[in-house]
Design a protein around this nucleic acid. Structure first.
Lengths: 211, 211
DNA sequence: TATAGGAACGAACACTTGTTCGTGTCAACC
DNA sequence: GGTTGACACGAACAAGTGTTCGTTCCTATA
């Protein structure tokens, strides 16, 4: 493929910069003015070249119809996950449905490739050291997938009704009762009846900022 | 503040969706057509209300001059960090300058709020369990900030020349030699001469997908 | 009942912006 | 020298698009 002329490269750069500044694309005359070109048809000519090279896309018959290819409409594959509270801090977690549209005070955003699943996710800030043997420490953010059942041995956030608190533990069904096993050898497991617990979600990911 | 009318909310939603699809904002007539409004002036009227409420910004006298406030020009505060290799696998890490513009095979993207620092970052995939005591496990991704010196006690990725491998350890200057201290007290530190090591970067964050 | 103001209407108007067309320059090539 | 193709020019045109204005409908309130 032949190289772009200096003018074509300048146009491409300008469009890119303009889009960064303005949230809407430039007009042909914007480009003309910026680059000191004497005619709009020259801009049109060069835009046609750029379009042939598949570097931009043009929507005919509409104003400001220039799009840069590659940066497909802004966000990559970013998922925004609401941080809806702390865990091991005592408050029940609102069910995700409640907060779909809500402007959670805080959200974290990361590539969907890092996640096995992108739906029904929410995040909690970890308080305390009860999961330190599961490589989860105080201050970490855990990402959870909302679900109400789980397999034995999965790490889940559990709402314990009589204690009125949420905690992150490995979960084991043991007949009538359940065992909630901390991932910290210095801590004892919690035994309680199956109907005293409510599974809130399953651990999906951990994010830690090292201070 | 009074609530938005149904129509105003619909307009806002439409603009948002349009922007997601198209990379350029809708015209007044796009909105009119979509919502089945009989006059452009009605749209204008409601856009004025939205502008007063500071929910959108309008650039007068230019086509498609509607901007949504809040989502300042596309990407939020996402930083893209190249994943440039594995750690504890033996290969030296190319200096970040080398790959600024390169299309690294893989990048991870996350909110800058999760990071104390957003410049000079790179990421490595952790191989093996040697850092399990620093709450870092096989398969985790560690985010590092490129730097060639460090304070005593900081966790850094170190290239050990004679062993030809990179490892993640706490770093202590001790006169002529350096001490590389694993996080686990039961593991012995590595002592070596200061000129046998090259600091690659300092640990900034850890991201783990739980399988 | 009378009045005021929010919301909507329809149409005309004027500015913005993409498109087209005839022309000109210049270097490469037969 | 003549031809061709890439690139540029300028001007006029047509379509896209924001703005304005007089009017109507409706509800709340005095």
């Amino acid at each position: 493929m032949k190289d772009l002329s200096r003018r074509q490269r300048a146009i491409l750069d300008f469009i890119e910069g303009f889009l960064r500044e303005n949230d809407y694309p430039p007009t042909i005359r914007d480009i003309q003015r910026e680059l000191g070109i004497s005619s709009t048809s020259v801009v049109d000519y060069n835009l046609k070249v750029l379009e042939d090279r598949a570097l931009i896309r043009r929507n005919r018959n509409i104003s400001r119809g220039i799009e840069l290819v590659g940066r497909s409409s802004g966000r990559h594959n970013i998922v925004a996950i609401p941080v809806i509270g702390q865990i091991a801090a005592g408050l029940p977690i609102p069910v995700p449905g409640d907060l779909e549209g809500s402007d959670a005070a805080e959200t974290i955003e990361l590539s969907s490739e890092l996640l096995p699943e992108t739906r029904d996710l929410f995040a909690l800030r970890v308080k305390g050291h009860s999961m330190v043997d599961a490589l989860i420490n105080d201050g970490d953010i855990v990402l959870l997938r909302h679900q109400e059942t789980c397999e034995n041995g999965e790490t889940v956030a559990v709402w314990i009704k009589d204690a009125k608190e949420t905690t992150l533990k490995r979960f084991y069904h043991e007949g009538e009762r359940v065992r909630l096993q901390p991932a910290n050898v210095t801590m004892e497991p919690i035994y309680t009846s199956a109907d005293n617990v409510e599974i809130q979600g399953k651990l999906v990911s951990v994010v830690r900022a090292v201070v």
